[in-house]
Simulated scan of single mutants.
Amino acid sequence: MRIQVKDVMTTTVAAVNKKAPFHVVAQVLIDRSVSGLPVIDSDDHVVGVVSEADLLCKAEFKERFYGDDYRPPLRARVRHMAGSEHDIYRKSVGHTAGELMSAPAVVATPNDSVVRAARLMDRHGVKRLPVVDAEGRLVGIVSRHDLLKVFTRSDEAIRNDVVNGLPPLAVSSIEVTVKDGVVGLTGQVDKNSQAIAAARHAENVDGVVGLRDELTWKLDDIAANLPYFGGT
C-alpha cells in the first residue's frame, strides 16, 4: 500500500485571507506556533503562502537601508540574491497577507504520495505544503513532521505490503521478516531476476528503513543475458 498525503496530513488548518492585515497574520503565526500560513481567497482557493520571513522583511529592509552599521547575515544575503530587491521591497511595505505572501504556492494534493510531497519540500526549500482539492481549495496541510509518520508503521503492516507485492512465482520461496522497519528476505528463488525484483519491491514499501537481502537463486538469468519478464 502506498501512503498518500491524505493519510498523514492535518485537516485542521490555520490559514489567513489575502486581505488579512499584517498584525493579524503575525498574531496567527504566534498563536499557532507555526512559521508559515496558507493564504486563501474568499472561496478558499490557495493563492500563496506567508511566512515569518516575509513579515520580517519589513524590519530587515528598514535596518538594511536606514541603519548606520547594519549588514545582513550571509543567509539573508544569499536569500536576497536568489530573489529580487523589488520583491523584498514589496514585502517590506506590504500591509496585508496578499501583499506579503510568496506566490504561487507550492501545493500537494490528497492523492500525492508522501515521496512526492517530500521531494517537493526539498526542491523548493519549504517545511510544509498546503493540500488542495481538484479546484485548488484548501483541504489540509502536510509538514515534514507529518511525513515522518510513514516510518511509524507497524512491522506487521510493512510485512503484509512486502509479501503482497512479491513476484507471484517467487512468493512461496521467500521468507519475509520485519523488525523495527528493517526487512529481511531469505530463501531461494528460481531466477536472479526474481530476487532483484523482490529486493527492489521491499525497499520501496512505505515505512521500510532498511533491507537485509539474503536471497539466493538457482539460475543467474541476468549474467546469462536471458530474457527478463519482471520476475514472473
Rank of each mutant, 00 (worst) to 15 (best):
R123E: 10
V189F: 06
E156T: 13
K91A: 13
S102N: 15
R71E: 15
V39R: 04
V139F: 03
M121H: 08
I3R: 12
A195R: 11
T11N: 04
K179L: 10
H80Q: 15
P130Y: 07
I174N: 05
P227S: 09
I30L: 12
E156M: 07
R116H: 08
D221S: 08
L147G: 09
D41Q: 02
T12A: 11
D112Y: 07
L219N: 11
F229C: 01
N111G: 04
N192F: 11
G140V: 04
F65Q: 01
D43Y: 09
R153G: 04
V93N: 01
F22T: 02
A170W: 01
R64W: 13
N192Y: 14
K179G: 00
V171S: 11
P167K: 01
L56T: 13
A157T: 13
P21M: 03
G48M: 10
E85I: 11
G94N: 09
A59R: 14
E85D: 12
H86N: 09
R77Q: 15
V49A: 07
V132S: 13
G67M: 12
T232K: 06
R212T: 10
V163G: 03
V205R: 01
A198S: 15
D122K: 12
V182Q: 04
S102M: 09
V178D: 08
D221Q: 10
R75Y: 09
S102V: 12
V49M: 15
V46E: 06
A170G: 08
D206V: 06
A199H: 00
G184V: 04
S33D: 11
Y70N: 02
V5Y: 06
V5K: 05
V46K: 05
I174L: 04
I158R: 01
K127T: 08
T12C: 00
N160F: 02
E85A: 15
R144Y: 01
G98C: 14
D54R: 03
Y89G: 00
A97G: 12
Q4H: 14
T12D: 12
P167T: 01
L138G: 01
N111I: 02
D161G: 15
V178Q: 06
D220T: 06
A134V: 08
A195I: 02
E175I: 05
A20D: 15
K179C: 06
Y89I: 01
E203Y: 00
